[in-house]
């Protein structure tokens, strides 16, 4: 998967554990990166994972925190150079608090 394909937005890929929903949000500014993450999470079933790529700085400080405060769970978060790969598990609340 090349960068331009990823940048066009949402896609899912198959892994051994089933589909992992995925978004490349590099270059997306706050708060649009969170808005997109939130909308995507709302489409998923509780317990399903979503993987997002986020830039360093404000995006990585804000998006995981917002996700957690709305009842989702951060399963993993890893720096990869100047950006981060974040694995979020869709929470059980229908909407944010």
């Amino acid at each position: 998967m090349n960068r331009s394909e990823e940048s066009r937005g949402v896609r899912s890929r198959e892994t051994d554990g089933g589909a992992i929903h995925y978004m490349d949000l590099r270059g997306e500014i706050c708060p649009m990166n969170w808005v997109k993450t939130k909308l995507r999470l709302e489409e998923l079933d509780p317990g399903e994972p979503l993987e997002v790529l986020l830039d360093e700085g404000e995006p990585i400080q804000n998006v995981p925190r917002s996700a957690r405060s709305e009842g989702h769970k951060i399963l993993n978060l890893k720096r990869e150079g100047s950006y981060y790969r974040v694995l979020i598990e869709r929470g059980h609340l229908s909407h944010g608090t």
Binding site: Q61, L77, K78
Partner: peptide, 8 residues
């Protein structure tokens, strides 16, 4: 989860 955001 040892992500290191706090350090960053």
């Amino acid at each position: 989860i040892s992500c290191g955001i706090c350090e960053d």
